[in-house]
Design a protein around this nucleic acid. Sequence first.
DNA 1: CCTGGAGTTGTCCTA
DNA 2: TTAGGACAACTCCAG
Length: 474
Amino acid sequence: MPQSTAIHWFRQDLRLADNPALRAASQRGAVLPAYILDDSNAGTQAMGAASRWWLYNSLRSLNESLGGKLLLYAGEPQDILLRLAKRHRASAITWNRCYEPWRTKRDAQIKRHLKQSGLVVETCNGSLLWEPWQVAKADGTAYKVFTPFYRKGCLNAELPRKPLSKPRAPSWLEDERAQPLEALNLLPSALWHESLASHWQAGEAAAHRRLKSFLKTGLRHYKGGRDFPAKLYTSRLSPYLHFGELSPHQVWHSVCAATAATAATDQHTDTFLSQLGWREFSYSLLYYNPDLPHKNLQEKFDKFPWREDEAALLAWQKGQTGVPLIDAGMRELWQTGFMHNRLRMLVGSFLVKNLLLDWRCGERWFWDTLVDADLANNAAGWQWVAGSGADAAPYFRIFNPVTQGQRFDPQGAYIRHYVPELASLPLPYLYAPWQAPAKVLEQADIVLGTTYPHPITDLKTSRQTALEAYKSLA
DNA sequence: CCTGGAGTTGTCCTA
DNA sequence: TTAGGACAACTCCAG
């Protein structure tokens, strides 16, 4: 049988195992494995700096597992794919679907165009457990509340497919027009990416190591332990899921398998799987509300009296608000490209409710600095925090970073780690140094306003102001 | 169409 | 010290 040639277009599926579109390509014959950096179609939603750092390393890793045969390009995918197909007489192109509105629009057009040129186009589901259009209420409309979405819509639907194995010994073809990785210009400033590199390893192999480690040490503490930022009980799989170095199917089934070996039903497992459900929910929200990243889901929020305050925003970004737990979270983000989930809620609540800054300011900063920056999750998360989402936090739920510190960082280990200038401040004051007696500050070598900032807002009065602002919307 | 129960993650005040 | 209620009302969802 004559072998034909297919292009597999890698996008958010930077893995070989459990990759339905890659398998489809390899079943047709020889494969041209291509990645295309497309900044122009992304517009304002082009990848942030931390994402680009991750992508650089992930592509390098993928290239290694392809024996150096990954084909890299930058530019307009439609032109690049068409020319590539012509040069190599490829008969088919495969890819796994993406769900960002700019990508679905672009991909639909590319698909039409390639088909008109006589190519077979095969698209697959490589990154969601359930397609957004398959999870709907009985009347066909989309869910707007998480719990019924997950319990009825997802758990009652077909079980996620079992992961596929790697394609067996495919032959990867080369292309003389492909560019070296360095030409994609992905790396941010050296100083910053060295800091990220000391915390993360990108790539498929590293993703599986992380998953294994979570199954071994995190999962059995997950339900309660995930709330304590000083503990390592969260999965930290989000960047791998975002870039598709790991599929949610692989995570889902390995978590279920690990649980089946120990107990029939397990609260830790259920809680963790529901977090995968939140990822699905965010994608559903984005799919049915393409404006989610920039438009309030609840229209009444369009007249919310957000403040403009560059200085406050800068202090928040740099972890210099004078509120230790908030600063710890923001510095974790800056140093590691990641932030513990509870801290994301807390710094979000602080930005939006205590500082009264527009949630989109926070969204933009997260977009640029998180290695797991994901359009759907980021937008849905910020709208949830701001209260402007469909299924959002009630407006009167305003986190108190002092109370939250006492509850979830009871030893102060997380704060001491990321705010070392407060490390010798004894416990009750560590959460609120402005309340410490002069003598205590002196003994800890702290001069407020010099070695550590005064708080940029009064928690109590700013809370009152926020309550009034939110009430004014009703 | 009507109805009732429910909705990820809190905080503060009062008795 | 601690437990319970207020904080609002609205929309979603399923029977």
